[in-house]
Amino acid sequence: MGTNLNHIGVLTSGGDAPGMNAAIRAVVRACTHYGIKVSGIQEGYQGLIDGNMDEMDARSVAHIINRGGTILQSARCLQFREKKGREKAHDNLKANDIDALIIIGGDGSFTGANLFSQEFDIPVVGIPGTIDNDIYGTDFTLGYDTALNTVVEAIDKIRDTATSHNRLFFIECMGRDAGFIALNAGIAGGATEILIPEDNKTLDDVVNKLEYSRSAKKTSNIVLVAEGDQLGDTFKLAEETQKKLPDHDIRVSVLGHIQRGGNPTCADRVLGSRLGVAAVEQLLHGHSGIMVGLRNDTVTTETLHDAITKKPGINRNLMHVADIVSL
């Protein structure tokens, strides 16, 4: 390989996502394979500032590929946003002879990584880990596939009650800035209507769709709402719908943080493994300031700057499909 790295640090930052442990495992074992020391940094950037890190080996990551969450734990660190905090983090890296960092997280984590790398000339490679799938430069992020399956399973279970009682359910899923989970899970779960931040449907659009469903003699209706949808609070949306459709029996279910948890799917375990190895190899080739991702089933790279500043577009064809199959 093309550089003389001796010691790599790895951390998870921001919201946890299934598949992070698979990525940690792959980073550690790739380092072992290439004869490089590796240290796990606890609690994200806070661990950098506190000097909370331990050397790892192939056995220290045994039996974690199937576990959700992150064995390194994660935390949001306000101190790292200040220059003084980043200086302390840099001092701790040097004190532990760590030459480079692998950051597993989302756009906020990558923003900190990019700034830190530029300020202190520390090689950094990112691995995208967020259930929202809202990182530019990769088709899939760690945790997305698992979260999708969790949401679909929840929809299936809620539909049992909806059908038994001829009810209309508004189900809120995660997706503050992106509708990937809602759109795909909505199609898979047979939702009557799907509301996402990238679309501009009105309350009247929702009401008209539900009235059509009633006339078509549907025995249950699911409206899947991404938490960042433009129509706002899901409970308020349900109240406004009830005013226009007083004969509907309406309920609201907010899925919340169950979407983050659970054992990662096969797809997330394989993705974490591929990206973990790729991150180590990119550092060994002398690359920095990049994110490793997956496009068309091929591992690719994207600059952290573009991963942070650009947004992946929603698949408009899927929105078209959703409108047709929800009749």
Rank of each mutant, 00 (worst) to 15 (best):
V27I: 15
V28R: 05
R29P: 05
A30E: 13
A30I: 00
A30Q: 10
C31H: 07
C31N: 08
C31M: 03
T32Y: 14
T32M: 02
T32W: 13
Y34W: 15
G35L: 11
I36L: 15
K37N: 15
V38P: 03
V38A: 05
V38T: 09
S39V: 00
I41T: 06
I41P: 00
I41G: 01
Q42Y: 07
Q42E: 03
Q42R: 14
Q42I: 13
E43D: 10
E43I: 02
E43A: 13
G44H: 02
Y45F: 12
Q46N: 02
G47L: 09
G47D: 03
G47R: 04
I49M: 13
D50W: 00
D50C: 08
D54T: 12
E55N: 10
E55R: 10
E55I: 02
M56V: 05
M56Y: 12
M56L: 15
M56I: 03
D57A: 09
R59F: 04
S60G: 09
S60Y: 02
S60L: 10
S60I: 11
S60C: 07
A62K: 14
A62G: 02
A62T: 01
H63G: 02
I64A: 01
I64W: 14
I65E: 11
I65L: 10
I65V: 12
R67G: 06
R67T: 07
G68F: 07
T70D: 11
T70Y: 09
T70S: 14
I71V: 10
I71L: 05
L72W: 11
Q73L: 10
